[in-house]
């Protein structure tokens, strides 16, 4: 059997296992995989920016907050169907991304990082002073009570598989090629006809859309949303951890990283306070000893890619 057929077979088995999970696994396992799916999606979107577009965003939490609050407000105050609210959360995130792109894309590198972070912080402060969303006390997303764990799990699974497929196709498209060229040498790629701004902007909007929707599903599971948690830098720190240990700039990196992160988080949750020290130590060790992360290192050693995106 060729390696391609083995790959398809393994992928099919994995998909079937994931799709039937609520029927044979424990509730605890479903809840763990739900979290893995959500973190995978969020981390893939951060990776699309940092790993492929050269946009180091420290403000992904602005879309998490906006997605979560959109869900709460639209489904509770306006009585919209839950999953329509989740979708609209993504749309509103895109609108926010368009709105801030004018100033934010004038900043480069570390200034872009700080700029995105400041916007997220500012939004957190705005929401905590806004009576409409009950200030800093937060909101219970009541319509989500009715949803079963497996419904939320399926929503997360669809988002996760959909976004990984989307990233894979995007990287194999002309846009993906252009992103690789920009990462290699931005001046040369510009001289050859690549519109750098348009490439980065497209990725920024896509990342906002999917992050906003994922946040909706995330808050269907959490049920409670509160501004300083939703718009907190903690989200991006987690995504950074996931992508760095998984492998920055690889499609499979965030997948492996998210699984490692969620499992570690479960085991370390007993040691409150220590867990952050352990996460920090792991991240620094990875940066020092295997800067390409788990997936990047394996790809280099074995010469095998789970998601081959190169043209030869």
């Amino acid at each position: 059997m060729s390696s391609n057929r083995i790959r398809i077979l393994l992928a099919a088995l994995l998909l079937i296992a994931l799709a039937t999970l609520p029927f044979w696994a424990t509730r605890y396992m479903v809840s763990i995989l739900l979290l893995i799916c959500l973190y995978m999606t969020l981390a893939s979107m951060w990776n699309l920016l940092a790993g492929y577009s050269g946009l180091i965003s420290l403000g992904q939490q602005m879309f998490i907050g906006i997605g979560g609050y959109s869900l709460a407000v639209l489904s509770m105050y306006h009585g919209l169907p839950i999953f329509l609210s989740v979708f609209l959360g993504g749309v509103i995130s895109v609108l926010l991304a368009v709105l801030i792109s004018l100033p934010i894309f004038r900043m480069k590198g570390v200034y872009f990082a700080i700029g995105t972070w400041i916007i997220a912080e500012a939004l957190g402060i705005c929401f905590s002073n806004w009576g409409y969303v009950r200030y800093g006390m937060g909101l219970f997303i009541q319509p989500a009570y009715r949803l079963s764990m497996s419904t939320i799990y399926y929503a997360a699974l669809v988002l996760c598989i959909g976004s990984i497929a989307l990233i894979y196709l995007l990287l194999r498209s002309n846009l993906g090629l252009a992103l690789m060229a920009i990462r290699d040498d931005d001046r040369a790629s510009e001289a050859i006809g690549v519109n750098i701004f348009r490439c980065k902007f497209t990725c920024f909007l896509l990342s906002a859309f999917i992050t906003g929707m994922t946040a909706g599903v995330l808050y269907l599971n959490t049920i409670f949303i509160q501004p300083f948690e939703a718009f907190g830098i903690g989200w991006t720190v987690k995504l950074l951890f996931i992508v760095i240990i998984g492998g920055l700039g690889t499609v499979a990196g965030p997948i492996v990283g998210a699984a490692v992160f969620v499992v570690l988080q479960q085991y370390l949750s007993e040691y409150v306070g220590f867990n952050l020290i352990i996460f920090g130590t792991i991240t620094i060790s990875v940066i020092f000893f295997t800067p390409k992360g788990i997936v990047g290192t394996f790809q280099e050693k074995l010469g095998f890619e789970i998601f081959p995106i190169r043209r030869r």
């Binding site: 090629l177 690789m180 060229a181 990462r183 290699d184 040498d185 001046r187 040369a188 790629s189 001289a191 190169r310 043209r311 030869r312």
Partner: peptide, 11 residues
């Protein structure tokens, strides 16, 4: 030349 060193010839 300014070719992209991390891209393949085809890319």
């Amino acid at each position: 030349r300014k070719i992209f060193s991390t891209l393949t010839v085809l890319e």
